[in-house]
Write a protein that binds this DNA or RNA. Structure first.
Lengths: 203, 203
DNA sequence: GCTTTTGCACCGACTGGTCAGTTCAAAACA
DNA sequence: TGTTTTGAACTGACCAGTCGGTGCAAAAGC
């Protein structure tokens, strides 16, 4: 039958590329207008694809969006994991690296950052939020726990809240920079955040 | 004309109360579902009012939302201003007070916090964002600038980015707490944020 | 006093338009 | 050859905004 057989796995495949284009178009439009205000027609048009293709590939508007969230969260988790595995002198230095990696990721996938921020706490996508918590926030929390273990943070420090705090801080700043100060180097923003969090200040 | 003509000004007036109820209902529903997905019918229903009343009072769905944003931003700005004017030993202590005030405000008006987070960067509401920046973020920025002047922060420190960072951090944490840890005292969350930002840590 | 008028605030059925999702035959691909 | 995409027509639900009408309390008239 004409049901989605496979072909979705191979990264370079025709179908995979169509999906990428749809993800990109959907992220842009939803970032601009929100999920409900974005029509499937407009997504298809921006992706340069027929409307039928959207339903052939995803089955529904919701499934497309759900796939988009999963896709983005997975890539973000990969980026943070990679940063966390790099060489670093101390847990706190790893925290720096994480923040920079998150900034760079959202610099590249700006529309996704806005989608994530806007939809993150919507009860409709609780599954995706759960994945965000277990695969992205967990990276931050682990590093903070390491810092506690290394004596760089007080024992008993609430690493869960702190992880959310740092993630939200970077997310907000990344979006603000893209919207209002696109020319400011990411490194400068990162330096400010590091100073703010680490108090590495020389008056 | 023969009669009060407005009635919108007097806080206890019938019309003012209707508007308050509509703001509240709209904030709750939009926080849950987003602006576009929220119908005027549902807002009216939750407010215990007929649909026509919404249009009588605000003219359009957009105008209602715009009014809601302004209303909330104004109250938030007032809350932060009050906190900033309170007695404090140093600019950094004022920063603490600001974060606590913001946490408390969003604790009380949780739905508004989510609306703000989700819609803040939507180009459609640029005016409201501008008001947020000039009346809310400016309070943070001023305090940070004071800290620079007092030698508590390095000269040249990017107070604009830092203000956004702190605001976004508190906003994110406030929403997460309400959604996932409603029993945790606001003061505990505040303490964690203060430690994170101030490095007041005793290993 | 007490009756009538005025107009604010509200009501809710109705309308005109929009959009998600379906269907399918034909074409393009690989 | 089987898979994927196309494009266009169709439907059924849904929704913002409209509009004629109601209730009511204060002011004006008597």
């Amino acid at each position: 039958m004409s049901r989605p057989g496979n072909g979705a796995k191979e990264p370079g495949g025709r179908r995979a590329e169509t999906r990428q284009r749809l993800y990109r178009a959907a992220a842009e439009l939803i970032a601009e207008q929100g999920f409900a205000a974005t029509t499937v027609d407009s997504i298809a048009e921006r992706a340069g694809v027929a409307k039928g293709t959207v339903f052939y590939n995803f089955g529904s508007k919701e499934a497309l969006f759900s796939g988009l969230l999963d896709h983005g969260i997975e890539r973000l988790a990969d980026a943070l994991d990679a940063a966390a595995r790099g060489p670093a002198e101390s847990p706190v230095a790893v925290l720096d690296a994480l923040m920079l990696a998150q900034l760079r990721f959202f610099d590249e996938y700006g529309p996704f950052a806005r989608v994530l921020l806007a939809e993150m706490w919507r009860t409709a996508w609780q599954d995706a939020v759960l994945r965000l918590r277990t695969s992205v926030l967990a990276v931050y929390e682990r590093v903070l726990a390491d810092a506690v273990a290394a004596g760089e943070l007080r024992p008993g420090f609430d690493t869960g809240t702190a992880a959310t705090a740092v993630f939200g801080m970077v997310l907000t700043v990344a979006i603000e920079r893209r919207a209002l100060r696109p020319d400011q180097p990411v490194e400068d923003v990162h330096a400010t955040l590091v100073e703010l969090v680490h108090r590495r200040i020389s008056p």
